[in-house]
């Protein structure tokens, strides 16, 4: 099977091509690839779920159902783990995930006000997404940036030494960077 999304040139049908020696053709769907990578390793359920979340942004129910038999773990066990650990999400987050650090240093330096300001400006509560699914706001455990507290992470990018008044600025910066990336 072709793993390529691009249509194959008619002169060279992909199906007819032999697989490289010793390398079977890769399975077409991501879940099977992930399951294959971790199936043989003991206790690797959490690693497999990390990879699913990295691929989809969360762990979709249908993927969890598909993963279970392939990795040899009951669905109940998967959900037992998914719901225990804070890091895993079972529903789609917004396009931009705003993680406000609520660690001690950030707490002392006013992360509560920053969270409140994000909530007010984005129009969604902590732990929820905006109605247009563009933004997701969450308070998170210490992100280890205590030296530049209070800190916020938006899609992996860290913003430090924030004041509550900077919130609008952060939102603007994220949108500007996204618009610039879209042009490229």
């Amino acid at each position: 099977m072709s793993t390529n999304d691009q249509p194959a040139a008619p002169a060279k049908p992909v199906l007819a091509q032999p697989a490289a020696p010793g390398k079977p053709a890769a399975p077409s769907d991501q879940t099977a690839i992930i399951a294959k990578r971790w199936r043989a390793k003991r206790g690797s359920l959490i690693m497999a779920l990390h990879e699913v979340q990295e691929t989809y942004g969360y762990v979709p129910r249908d993927v969890a159902l598909k993963l279970a038999p392939q990795i040899g773990v009951p669905v109940a066990r998967i959900y037992e783990v998914l719901t225990f650990y804070n890091y895993f999400k079972t529903s789609a987050p917004g396009k931009f995930v705003v993680s406000v650090c609520t660690g001690t240093a950030c707490h002392l330096k006013g992360s509560g006000d920053i969270l409140a300001n994000f909530s007010a400006q984005l129009g969604c509560k902590e732990g929820e997404s905006t109605t247009d699914k563009l933004w997701h706001l969450q308070g998170v455990r210490c992100i280890g940036c205590c030296g530049i507290a209070p800190a916020v992470i938006v899609n992996g990018k860290v913003f430090g030494k924030l004041k509550p008044a900077d919130v609008g600025d952060v939102i603007d910066k994220v949108l500007t960077a996204d618009a610039a990336a879209a042009k490229v």
């Binding site: 206790g43 690797s44 359920l45 959490i46 895993f88």
Partner: peptide
């Protein structure tokens, strides 16, 4: 990788987590 559980710093909980539980 851990997955966001403070209790996993405790030795026996950490082991359970590595075992995929």
């Amino acid at each position: 990788l851990g997955a966001g559980a403070f209790v996993c710093g405790e030795e026996t909980a950490l082991i359970a987590s590595i075992e995929g539980k």
